[in-house]
Design a protein around this nucleic acid. Structure first.
Length: 544
RNA sequence: GGCCGCGUACCAAAGUGGUCUAAUGGAGCGGAUUGCAAAUCCGUUGGCGUAAGCCUUCGUCGGUUCGAAUCCGACCGCGGCCUCCA
């Protein structure tokens, strides 16, 4: 059975049918960079990553095309334009988020909390964006996000919004020319709006049709923001504002772009050029036949469905389709929110984690190995609200260790093993993922097979490697470990105080003073170190 | 008010008409191993029974069916979006 996915646009499971089976185009709405990305962001990005890895894999069969491997061009943007804190679709009120981040960084700098060696001017929004972009790329590579690894070779795969403003200006111009956008206000305070009623299919993705919006508005669209708009649902394409922290010249005055237009530009610019990036002139000349998707797959968190993706469809279809119809993307893929310890993540509840808080070594972070974080974030079906818990993280860490043991034993094994069992596992694993990425089912098949193999052989390791090319777990860096002649320190430093205790414990054990040696173990546990005796007379030490 | 989704055993999570007391991981219990732990390996974890077997379970109630965790209806509960948020 070929790969089917739940398409948000049609609310049905549908086979994935790329326009060009040799080159599947995939666009993911990437992170804003005025703060560190949190594990909820990463759940969504990693779900997209697993999808692209699976589509690339020989395990994945596409309808009418057959099994892979195949190429996926995956683009993920970096939103480094500071959008507004109260960015309702009206006129962009509130404060620029980049400015808010600058104030926060300034405070951290004053209190000495910024990491040493960071050269950063908190008043410069480009500096702030660069700072968080680098941190995001670090996090993403640690967690095995393939696009972040690839962009080192081809930076165009992760375009920056600030580098694409000319394309946005060109596209806004096109939309005005084609009668889908209009300018209001006079020089100094001009605003360009997209005129929503000019796009018939508006609401198809989210169900928020113009009628529904009118009924549901319930006073939420503040009347003071409506001045000049021809329809309450019309949304911002360009705002003239000479006081803004980031601003660019345009035919409608110096200002900044609306927050939906960047994705319309960057997706088409990178994915519609056979190789490389379309320049603004080529972009405005781009014409896609009606009812043909401009890109094959588009992903983003469920909260992007409305208004962001709805507006993106309207812009892209009106700008690029010959008679201004959709659907822009053939397949809309929306992972759901992540909960933490049963509740929606929020800073005030204290259940808010950035990725680096989890993987950084103690005492700054929790010292959890990236492979365990990745597995925990991908192991729940992408359309369920996954619940991220300490317990789940421990489960995942153990599963990773079990796979590693199996792989190592297999590489050291001899013989052919059971080819039939391998084939059955491979088929069952693939079949589960073909069905709307049923990853829990696929992991069940994998674990069941691993449990049944009594004497693993190199061919088993090869299958595990093929499977892991999709999961992306074992290929991640194993936890750092520091060796001393007494202990192996996993994910933590060889603290002198700990070393002293370990030496004392060895002496106590030698003297068969087990009461003393157990007391030391308890003391270490009180200090946050778990220890266990391993082969060779050494002690394995872990934080946590 | 509108749109969408979810409710499975101790926990997480598969299963979408019979092979289901129901994959898989964790946790628990018993055993091997260990000075003790940890880790690992084996067995086991609804009830009764020595066993074969019988009875009961997949939010609740009802319906369709020879047969339902799986299909339909109602209800209860939970959540998301409609406004910045992955």
């Amino acid at each position: 059975m070929p790969l089917t996915l739940y398409n948000t646009l049609t609310r049905r499971l549908e086979p994935l049918r790329p326009r060009d089976p040799r080159r599947v185009t995939f666009y993911t709405c990437g992170p804003p960079v005025y703060d560190d990305a949190h594990i909820g962001n990463f759940r969504s990005f990693l779900a997209a990553d697993v999808l692209r890895r699976f589509v690339e894999s020989p395990l994945c069969e596409l309808e009418g095309i057959g099994p892979g491997p195949r190429t996926v061009v995956h683009v993920m943007n970096i939103t480094d334009v500071g959008h507004m804190t109260d960015d309702d679709q009206a006129d962009g009120g509130g404060e620029d988020k980049m400015a808010v981040a600058g104030r926060r960084l300034l405070e951290q700098k004053k209190s000495g909390k910024l990491p040493a060696g960071v050269a950063l001017d908190p008043n410069n929004p480009y500096d702030i964006a660069r700072f968080y972009t680098m941190r995001f790329l670090d996090d993403a590579k640690k967690l095995g996000l393939k696009v972040a690894i690839e962009q080192e070779r081809d930076p165009t795969l992760m375009p920056r919004a600030t580098a694409n403003v000319p394309g946005m200006i060109a596209l806004v111009g096109t939309l005005i020319e084609r009668g889908h956008a209009y300018v209001v206000g006079s020089a100094g305070s001009r605003v360009v709006y997209f005129h929503v009623p000019s796009f018939q299919a508006y609401g198809a993705l989210s169900g928020n049709t113009l009628d529904a919006l009118r009924e549901g508005a319930g006073g939420r669209v503040a009347s003071e923001n409506q001045s000049g708009k021809r329809h309450p649902a019309d949304f911002l394409l360009w705002k003239e504002d000479s006081t803004h922290v980031m601003k660019w010249d345009s035919p409608w005055g110096a200002g900044y772009p609306g927050w939906h237009i960047e994705c319309s530009v960057m997706s088409a610019a990178r994915l519609c050029g056979e190789s490389g990036v379309l320049d603004p002139d080529a972009l405005v000349r781009l014409r896609v036949p009606d009812a043909h998707p401009i890109i094959d797959i588009h992903s983003g968190g469920e909260d992007n469905i409305f208004p962001h993706h709805e507006c993106e469809i309207a812009q892209s279809a009106c700008a690029f389709n010959t008679s201004h119809a959709g659907p822009y993307a053939g397949m809309w893929f929306h992972p759901r929110f992540l909960f933490v310890e049963g509740a929606k993540m929020s800073k005030s509840k204290g259940n808010f984690f950035t990725a680096r808080q989890l993987y950084s070594p103690a005492p700054d972070g929790k010292g959890i190995e990236p492979a365990a974080i990745r597995l925990e974030l991908i192991r729940t079906h992408y359309r369920s609200n996954a619940n991220f818990t300490e317990q789940g993280l421990r489960d995942s860490a153990r599963m990773v260790e079990r796979w590693r043991r199996f792989r190592d034993a297999a590489l050291a094994g001899r013989g052919e093993g059971d080819a039939g069992a391998r084939r059955a596992c491979r088929d069952a694993f693939a079949a589960a993922l073909q069905e709307d990425l049923n990853i829990a089912g696929a992991l069940g098949e994998l674990n069941g097979w691993i449990g049944r193999v009594e004497a693993p052989v190199p061919a088993d390791a090869a299958l595990l490697r093929e499977i892991d090319a999709v999961l992306g777990v074992l290929e991640l860096e194993p936890p750092s470990s520091a060796q001393t002649d007494i202990g192996v320190f996993i994910g933590c430093e060889a603290d002198p105080a700990v070393l002293a205790k370990l030496n004392e414990r060895v002496a106590a054990k030698k003297a068969k003073d087990f009461a003393r040696s157990d007391a030391i173990r308890a003391e270490l546990a009180g200090m946050g170190y778990q220890i266990k005796d391993v082969a060779g007379g050494k002690v394995e030490v872990r934080r946590g």
